[in-house]
Amino acid sequence: MAFSGDPAASWSILLEASLREAPDPAAVAARMSRAGAEFPNLGPAAIVLRPSDWDGARAAFADDHYHASDPLVRVALAGDSLLIAAHHGAVDGLGLLALLGIALGEPVHSSATGVASRSPDRPYLLHAADRVREAVWAPPTRIAPSLRGNDSGDHLVSRALPAVKLGSARLTTAALDTTRRWNAARGAAHDRVVAAIGASWRGGADPRPEADSALLRLRLPAGAGDEDVRALLASAAPEAGFPSEHNPLARWGMRVLASRLGSTFLASNLGVVKADVEALRFYPAASGRSGVAFGVVTTGEVTTATVRVRRRDFDAAGAAALLDLLCEAVLSGREVPHQG
């Protein structure tokens, strides 16, 4: 199963929760089974795994591709740790929050707001022509790799911060600052930064386990600040949908231009989440030229920032250093979020 034009990506998005107490595994399994029956988009009923190797289960959930007849939701439970992964074609980030609520048997809400327009400004073919021209003549800046390797899969790294007020504009500006500082330190160009912003058509007040996502794509000018990015977000039209995975011409084109298509980074913010958990960690799908995705979610007194990067381009130390730069940029404009 392919999604958003990159057949090399697993398109598995993850939400990891540290719970206040260990739930009953049988009850979690029963709730997930009922969800599969109620929402056909989730595929066959998810099997709740109880792995002895938690880090290995997280890596497998992130890296393993989904195949025909596979469940499109993956669940692991170990004590007070819960991991939910899903194919991005089945649910979006808010959909993962809905699945968390289903697994716990409790409502989960987010402060995230949906985008206003429900349709792109132009059809897919015109968007595609623009992307091909961009890929050939002026590809987006790539976040400089820390290595050249052959390993498959992704590194997933997280950092827990004091709760901060962090909208999509601030997160995008922080990611822009991170890109420029990272590339400048390595003598790499950073003059054509293109941000992909994960958003949703609906808000997070009542999330559903569905894919109702939108992608905003911003070409960020040099020196852009929060207000500049906020204005770009307000005027951005959602990207047109990608063609069917069965379209051989489209898939061939994606493969040929894979190293020059896409964005510099993806940033996705689940907002302030109200749920009976200690902390959440959100890992969006990494694709595009850099294969770098930043995720943020706040719950209670904790904001968690994550980065997901390709192992073939970054070692573990490089991934951690990249996320540390993002956290520095985020904390430089820290505000305490309103929890009311």
Rank of each mutant, 00 (worst) to 15 (best):
S12V: 08
L15F: 04
A17K: 01
A22H: 09
P23V: 03
V28M: 11
A29F: 13
R31W: 12
R34D: 12
R34T: 11
G36N: 00
G36A: 15
E38H: 03
A45V: 15
A46C: 11
P51G: 02
W54Q: 11
G56I: 13
A59E: 13
D63C: 08
D63W: 02
D64G: 10
H65E: 10
H67A: 15
P71I: 12
V75E: 07
G79I: 14
S81Q: 15
L82H: 02
L83R: 06
I84L: 12
L96Y: 10
A98C: 10
L104N: 03
V108W: 13
T113Y: 00
T113K: 11
P123K: 01
V132E: 00
E134K: 10
A135G: 12
V136Q: 11
P139R: 04
P140S: 04
P145F: 06
N150M: 03
S152T: 14
H155K: 04
L156M: 09
S158M: 14
A160D: 11
A163Y: 02
L166C: 13
L171H: 05
D177F: 02
T179N: 11
R180Y: 10
A184H: 13
R186L: 05
A188L: 06
D191A: 09
A196L: 06
W201N: 11
R202M: 15
A205V: 15
P209C: 12
E210H: 11
A211K: 12
L215N: 12
R219N: 15
D228K: 06
A237N: 09
P238H: 03
E239P: 09
G241M: 10
E245W: 13
L257G: 14
L257H: 10
G262P: 09
F265H: 12
L266K: 08
V272C: 05
V277W: 06
A286N: 00
G295Q: 04
V296E: 04
R308S: 14
R310I: 03
A316T: 05
A316S: 02
E328I: 05
L331K: 03
R334P: 08
